[in-house]
Amino acid sequence: MSKLYFTEDHEWLNVDGDTAIVGISTYAAGQLGDVVFIELPDTSKTVAKGDDIAVVESVKSASEIYAPVSGTITAANDALEDAPETVNDDAQGAGWFFKMTITDTSQLEGLMDEAAYAEFTKE
């Protein structure tokens, strides 16, 4: 049974056991405008929570994607390289960025659930 979390940096994690799929929120994709390029992390890379590991660019902005928790990257969504618009079309589905295994699932505790994130983006 997977569970959806959000970070204050507008990333989402779909967690199942110790694995997670990570992307940026629909709200964030809307704020960025037309996404034109995504730089994805190398697979099998070990990352610490807060590391900047990917970049998402729109025409006029470039934003870092941080590792939401510590772990190891297991897959990257290579399809985004040729179709960055997927992030605008389906940010929380086909527009996922990477998959990772989580070193310490207790790091999930500080994150928001969908309702809390909805509240967070209202501010």
Binding site: F37, V59, S61, A62
Partner: peptide, 12 residues
């Protein structure tokens, strides 16, 4: 491709 440039990336 101006996101590579200093206006946007600044120190990066």
């Amino acid at each position: 491709l101006s996101t590579r440039e200093k206006h946007i990336r600044r120190e990066k």
